[in-house]
Amino acid sequence: MSKVKVAFTLNDQEVSLLVQPEERLLDTIRDRLNLTGTKEGCGVGECGACTVMLDGQAVNSCLVLTAQVYGREVRTVEGLGGEEELDKLQQAFIDHQAVQCGFCTPGMLMSARALLDDTGSPTREEIKTALDGNLCRCTGYKQIVEAVEAAAEAEEVD
């Protein structure tokens, strides 16, 4: 097997490992690095359960080859918030009942985090666009959009 050495930053920590040439970032994160917050739904870019941030942008980790992220920065749901406190988005999701079964939540949070880092006070339309790659079977999206709005406001106050 011709394994590939890859080194990248995962949640602010340097990681270095050998992967298969065709290995998906999703599998590396879940199976090798044991960060299981990132979920697999469809495996073909349709559902957004696997969303992570790559150099600050939301991407589907089921469509990224791990070997491609050499030298780049990856952030998963485990890398949100601090040691002790939740990310403002996580708190807002709880406060607004934006979580039911929770399967879509990590992906939703990463899409929303990428948006807020990029756009300080997004409009409702911008929030909907940022979440257009994340499916939720349970909530009907309303609470999720409201949670993101609330988190954006809370961050502006800080």
Partner: peptide, 9 residues
Amino acid sequence: LGSTPIRNR
């Protein structure tokens, strides 16, 4: 085209 993560990548 596609969705936000698809357009990003």
